[in-house]
Design a protein around this nucleic acid. Sequence first.
DNA 1: TATTGTTATACTCTATAACTATA
DNA 2: TATAGTTATAGAGTATAACAATA
Lengths: 151, 151
Amino acid sequence: MPIDDRPDLAAMIVPLGRALVAAELPVLRRHNLSMWAYAVLLALEEEPVRTQSALAQAIGADKTRIIAVLDDLQERGLITRHPDPTDRRARLLSLTRAGRFHRDLTQNAIRLREDQILAHLDPAQREAFLAALHTLTTLPAEEFAPPDNQD
Amino acid sequence: MPIDDRPDLAAMIVPLGRALVAAELPVLRRHNLSMWAYAVLLALEEEPVRTQSALAQAIGADKTRIIAVLDDLQERGLITRHPDPTDRRARLLSLTRAGRFHRDLTQNAIRLREDQILAHLDPAQREAFLAALHTLTTLPAEEFAPPDNQD
DNA sequence: TATTGTTATACTCTATAACTATA
DNA sequence: TATAGTTATAGAGTATAACAATA
């Protein structure tokens, strides 16, 4: 009765995500970063962010969720948090040089770990896998919304 | 400084998993199943399971986590839960005919939903993606454990 | 004494509501 | 009044500890 004989997509992806996180948490711990702190450093790398709410949304967190994270990163000199002169309610967030350095160091270690896992795929498969992942993750959210015709 | 220019693997897979779950929860809800209940029905399909602990472990849950789920499925006549005659501490778990039917119905709906999402990949990419996923998810847990050489 | 299943409890994570300071 | 950030509170989900039945 099933359409084809593959396991459910989510039944593969979700456990794989859990396993990846479990594999990477020790790396982050050695670099004194929580998963959220690492996500913040990655999100700030692209460009400085103008509000904490926007940053939170960008990494899929609640705005209240990241406040303690930002406090800690600021205290450690990895990010700066200045009131926006044009609207002093908002906080301009950016990486310090130390923050950028620490982020690169950590990301290299994370990538090494991921490359060890990806080494189980032959090069062609690996390329296709990463390409497909990229395609799916950059899909607009509407593509995941339920269609009008339910079921 | 990064090794290559792909985004972090976990940074793609975890959000993709979340998006998939969000896309599939409405389907499950229409079939009156929670994600855990659906996982239980899928795990029981393969073969009857001899203990609840084994079942819990198979789907990545705590043994205490699934008790209420089993209570509900049993009450609805979708599974049976009999004491093992050879060791009356254990409970033999299996699907009823109604359970199997309901599972197939639900899984078909889930697969349809997933196929809509996978339709964004061209056929070759889609095949490679599923094959790679299968390879990675069937990897023994040790492959995800940290290597001796830390960092 | 050890194990299966169960219940009760505590803990973690996350979201909600209420507050302040700016606008 | 509306919004950004913050704090305090409550809720969901999960794991831990304690218990009863069986081995």
